[in-house]
């Protein structure tokens, strides 16, 4: 309620100054990750479509660092006038429990949550298992010998493993990598055996026969890899966490005037609808979401609950999700 009143005030104060014709100058888009990353690619391909609707340029600036926290804090330090956008990925939803920052997306206004990645497990071709059940059996029979890649605690791979280990005890050797790209390369070179990664990053390698798909960490099959079974077939109790997956979205600071939010929402919804953007997302194996308003907030909240509690239960959270009133999924 307090936030609402505040934002109404801020909106009033700002709308008196020529806000009617938003935007009247260039907009700065702050990208949370570096040049060439998947967030960067997604944002640079949606922005030209949004620019057309807005009738203003969006100057895209990469401000990488602190798992995205630097960009998030930067945008929150700017005026809430709709001229500074945060273009980010899922990471801020974990800041609070990991103790990285005291803000997350619940403290901002989502303009559009554009797409979601589908997590999956892949294995190197020589691995002596082909399905989820075979993998579980093999690991139980040979504790400690299977090397599983990871992208650090709190990364997607660690959450997927925490999800699975909340149901079955697995003794694996975890080898951390600096991102899923390097880990998938190491998988092909035989340095690790199994890697939890997003479908988009692995799909081309699977189709070329350079690695094999074990399971999709989702509650349904996917048209891109129709022969791969979802994890719920082996572990039905994971249903409560799904659908889950890293996402890309555009956000503005709390308190941004309504007309600016409306205009931006319209612009990015149009961008997410564009044929070439949809085609790009499909080839990269991301599911189009194009969520704004309340549905976007709901999705973000669910993501936060699932990740925060899994991380907490797996024992590497610095703070309990309860401290931030994050409900259990």
């Amino acid at each position: 309620m307090k936030k609402l009143i505040l934002s109404a005030f801020a909106g009033l104060a700002l709308s008196s100054m020529a806000m009617a014709d938003y935007p009247n100058k260039d907009i700065q888009g702050i990208i949370q990750w570096g040049a060439g990353g998947s967030t960067d690619t997604v944002m640079r391909s949606v922005a030209p479509h949004a620019e057309k609707v807005l009738g203003a340029d969006i100057i895209l600036t990469n401000r990488p660092g602190g798992v995205g926290a630097i960009a998030t804090k930067f945008v929150n330090a700017k005026k809430a006038d709709g001229y500074t956008l945060l273009m980010g990925a899922e990471n801020p939803q974990m800041y609070k429990v990991l103790g990285l920052a005291d803000i997350d997306y619940s403290d901002m206004i989502p303009i559009n949550v554009m797409a979601r990645g589908i997590p999956m497990l892949v294995a190197q071709n020589d691995a002596p298992f082909n399905t989820m059940q075979e993998m579980i059996d093999y690991i139980k029979a040979n504790p400690g010998t299977v090397k599983v890649g990871s992208t650090g605690q709190g990364g997607l791979a660690s959450i997927v493993m925490a999800m699975i280990e909340s149901e079955v005890d697995l003794d694996v050797t975890t080898v951390p990598y600096n991102g899923d790209g390097p880990a998938l390369t190491a998988l092909q070179g035989g340095a690790i055996d199994v890697m939890p990664a997003v479908l988009g990053a692995a799909v081309q390698h699977i189709k070329a026969g350079r690695m094999k798909a074990i399971t999709l960490v989702d509650n349904q099959q996917n048209a891109v890899l129709p022969e791969v079974a979802p994890i719920t077939e082996t572990l039905p109790s994971l249903e409560k966490y799904l659908p889950y997956g890293p996402f890309f979205g555009v956000f503005v600071k709390q308190g941004t005037p309504d007309d600016a939010v409306a205009k931006l929402t319209e612009a990015f919804a149009t961008g997410a609808e564009a044929e070439d953007f949809k085609a790009l997302m499909e080839t990269r194996g991301y599911g189009i979401m194009n969520l704004s308003g309340q549905p976007a907030v709901d999705f973000l909240d669910n993501y936060r609950s699932v990740s925060s509690w899994l991380v907490h239960d797996a024992g590497f959270a610095k703070h309990s999700p309860e401290e931030f009133n994050i409900p259990r999924p």
Binding site: K25, I59, T61
Partner: peptide
């Protein structure tokens, strides 16, 4: 190169617009 240098007291973006 569209590197937004610190604007400080000069309303650069307005002027450019």
């Amino acid at each position: 190169f569209q590197i937004v240098l610190p604007e400080g007291v000069v309303p650069e973006r307005e002027i450019l617009a």
